[in-house]
Amino acid sequence: MYYNIEDILCEDHLVECRLEVDLYKGSFLDKEAHTEDGNLQRGHVMKLPLWMAKIMSEQEYDGIQLVSVEILEIFEDEFQKALDADPQIVNLKYHSPYFYQLGFKMADMIANDVRLERFRGAVKLRETLIEALKKRSIQVIFKLVQSKLEELNLLTEDEKENFYLSKKIKLEYEKWEQRLTRRQKNDIPNKKLKQL
């Protein structure tokens, strides 16, 4: 099986999970849990890496899901509304260098769980992320034209990738344009040859 390094780094992000069952000797999962017997009780909230939360949320015990994943604050309604209003003013990289990937992974995990408050649902989250990426990508292309390379450190990994791809396309276009111009110059007949 092939693992993408960006997926690995993205899934290392910590998410809050709530235990839906009692977990015998499960305190090793939460360093902050102080239990004498090492057991974790149903309802206990702990932070787990996204990859582990995903695995545990897919497991069941007696027909009950082991953990339910809480939506990250950066994907709650208030933050989504800010992204809808003007995604360019929000520093997404501050929240996660893999903001978009993390958002799509959270949407896949949480789906449209009706128990979640402050969350409009997975479909709306996906739409918001796509629109934010579109609007911010236009900004990335503008930065390319303006050559404001110092602002690149504010971009997420996906936005940087778009920036470098845009830059590559621009350079390829300029090379093509130069070749076309040279070819047109060479197509002009030489006056001396015409006289012969």
Rank of each mutant, 00 (worst) to 15 (best):
R126P: 02
E177W: 01
I141H: 00
L72H: 05
Y100L: 12
E177M: 12
K25P: 02
E151M: 04
K47C: 06
R183A: 14
D62C: 09
K192F: 07
N190C: 04
F163P: 07
E174K: 12
L72C: 11
K168F: 09
K194T: 11
Q178I: 09
S137E: 15
Q41V: 05
L125C: 11
Q41F: 06
S96L: 13
L149K: 09
I71K: 03
G43K: 12
H13Y: 12
A53S: 12
Q139H: 08
F163V: 02
L40C: 08
V145C: 13
N162T: 13
L29V: 01
Y173A: 08
L133A: 14
N162I: 15
L154M: 10
Q146N: 03
A122D: 13
E150Q: 08
Y61E: 10
R182H: 07
E58S: 06
E32Y: 13
V21A: 01
E151G: 00
V90H: 10
R126F: 01
D113G: 04
T128R: 10
G26K: 11
V140P: 03
V45H: 08
T35F: 04
V90W: 07
Y173L: 15
L23D: 01
Q139K: 09
I5F: 03
E117Q: 15
G103S: 01
R179T: 02
A107W: 05
K167D: 14
L193N: 14
R42Q: 12
W176C: 07
V15F: 00
L125N: 06
Q80P: 02
L19R: 04
V21M: 06
N112S: 13
Y3A: 04
F28N: 03
I8V: 12
H95I: 01
A85G: 01
L14T: 02
K134Y: 06
L19Y: 03
L152H: 05
D37S: 14
A53G: 13
L180W: 14
C10Y: 00
V15G: 03
E16D: 11
E32G: 10
E177P: 01
E177V: 10
A111V: 07
E131I: 06
R136H: 03
L149W: 05
E36D: 13
E131Y: 06
K31C: 00
F28K: 12
H44M: 11
Y100P: 02
L9H: 08
Q139D: 10
L48G: 06
I110C: 07
I8P: 03
L133D: 08
Q88M: 10
E159R: 05
K191W: 10
E58I: 06
R118E: 11
H44Q: 10
V123A: 11
D37N: 15
P189F: 02
L165F: 10
D77L: 06
Y2M: 11
L152W: 11
S68C: 05
K191P: 14
A53Y: 05
E157N: 05
K160D: 05
D108L: 11
V114F: 04
Y2A: 06
E16T: 10
L154D: 10
